[in-house]
Amino acid sequence: MDSLLDLIGGVLLVMGTGFLFLGGLGLVRMPDLFNRIQVGTKATTLGTILTLVGAIFLHPEWGLKLALIGLFLLFTNPLSSQVLARAAHRIGIKQSPATKVDRLIELPWRRP
């Protein structure tokens, strides 16, 4: 039974690090800041959560605290991305030439 839990935990840890690696790869490959934030947010959220769940399988007695960390992550991770993206747009960070539309420009506080 113990070795089965260890196995599941190990597999989850590897999957988590896999997603974190893809996130890192995305940061290098994406053309502009907004797309980078996108991969950065999503891959790290799922990657970290999978890592935490894997750790829960390896150390069930830490379960509650690790679950709480996951919950905080779900609330704070997207929030910081949103703030970063908004600040970047406000100061007029260049967007990739592939960008199709930008409806945020219509807001009054946006400098031309």
Partner: peptide
């Protein structure tokens, strides 16, 4: 969402089509 972005990041042509919508 992760699987979708993983597919985009891993494909050599990087098939993105970004924009800001409302």
């Amino acid at each position: 969402s992760n699987l979708k972005l993983a597919a985009i990041v891993l494909s050599p042509s990087l098939p993105i089509n970004p924009g800001i919508i409302k």
